[in-house]
């Protein structure tokens, strides 16, 4: 099976199969242990991500809500969810454009968490995006390991399952929370409804120098509860990588320049009293190029 077909099959399996497992997340010389349970039935998908280190932080996602539980602070936060799965959906339509930007190839076989796996290496053809290496279980097509690789060829973030079980009979399974949600919990909800989407013709902020292969995917407009200020978010993608540009009335106190956290880079710039922040899982040069090319133009002119 070609490499891209494995990626497609993996995307479908991650969403359609019932499974549970533990994995480690490595980044910046740190190791986090987490567990995941994914259920799919006629009602849709449900997932739980649980941190096994320190506080049992718990994130539960279903078709409608994203629920976060912090037992030690007895807090539950609920919000609407945009995606209905932790696993990204691979869109077959992207394949043609992706092949112009990335080389996708099978690089061998390996055994991870007891699963025989095929290795798919998606390597960028330029230095504007990261590469990613995927280990996909041959039998289930579930993702068992992934490495994010920077422009220098270094592994900068890694997720690797240490155990993974496909659940064949999920009728008796339910998604449990670790603590009982009793009266001592404080329910926190910040807003109702979802961000409004803007049509591209109404967007007043534009880019003069879009990195090769990236395109505008969507635009959102929101109000910050605490300040009443409006924030515009433009999301760009090349089919595999993505970055966002946030524009808001100046609120980061004239800070400008670049910053990073693990594989995520951000570049901040002040333009006409507005903060322009480009952020994404792409190299620093890419977010800088995007941030520096943002300009304001009256819509529909």
């Amino acid at each position: 099976m070609p490499a891209m077909d494995w990626v497609q099959k993996m995307s479908e399996s991650m969403r359609n199969l019932n499974y549970r497992g533990n994995f480690v997340y490595m980044h910046e010389k740190q190791l986090e242990s987490m567990s995941i349970l994914h259920l799919k039935n006629e009602q849709g998908e449900k997932e739980r991500l649980l941190s096994l280190n320190g506080e049992a932080r718990e994130v539960i996602r279903d078709n409608k809500n994203l629920t976060c539980i912090w037992p030690s602070s007895r807090t539950v936060v609920i919000d609407h969810t945009k995606q209905n799965s932790f696993s990204p959906l691979f869109i077959p339509d992207d394949i043609a454009s992706i092949s112009q930007l990335y080389d996708v190839k099978l690089t061998g076989k390996d055994r991870v968490a007891g699963h025989e796996s095929v290795m798919v290496f998606i390597s960028p053809k330029d230095q504007l995006r990261y590469g990613i290496k995927l280990w996909i279980a041959e039998e289930s097509a579930l993702l068992v390991k992934s490495n994010l690789i920077n422009e220098l060829g270094e592994v900068i973030e890694q997720v690797m399952f240490t155990s993974l079980e496909v659940l064949l009979d999920s009728h008796d399974l339910t998604l449990n929370t670790i603590p009982e949600l009793d009266e001592s919990f404080t329910m926190v909800r910040y807003h109702q409804g979802e961000p409004s989407e803007e049509s591209s013709s109404d967007v007043a902020w534009h880019l003069t120098d879009m990195p090769k292969g990236f395109r505008l995917d969507s635009v959102l407009k929101r109000e910050v509860s605490a300040t009443g200020l409006y924030v515009h978010q433009m999301i760009f993608t090349d089919g595999l990588a993505s970055l966002s540009v946030f524009v808001e009335k100046e609120s980061v106190q004239n800070h400008s320049g670049s910053t990073s956290m693990g594989a995520v880079n951000a570049f901040i710039r002040i333009v006409d009293g507005h903060s322009i922040i480009a952020i994404g899982e792409v190299p620093a040069a890419t977010v800088q190029q995007v941030a520096e090319s943002v300009f304001y133009q009256e819509p529909n002119l």
Binding site: Y25, E32, R57, Q233, G239, V264
Partner: peptide
């Protein structure tokens, strides 16, 4: 501010990076 931006970016973007973005948030 960057935290808020990262989370909103993760939630609304379509990165094909497996579980890494979510693990990043939880971690």
């Amino acid at each position: 501010k960057l935290n808020a931006y990262l989370i909103n970016h993760t939630e609304y973007s379509k990165s094909m990076q497996g579980l890494i973005p979510q693990a990043r948030v939880a971690g």
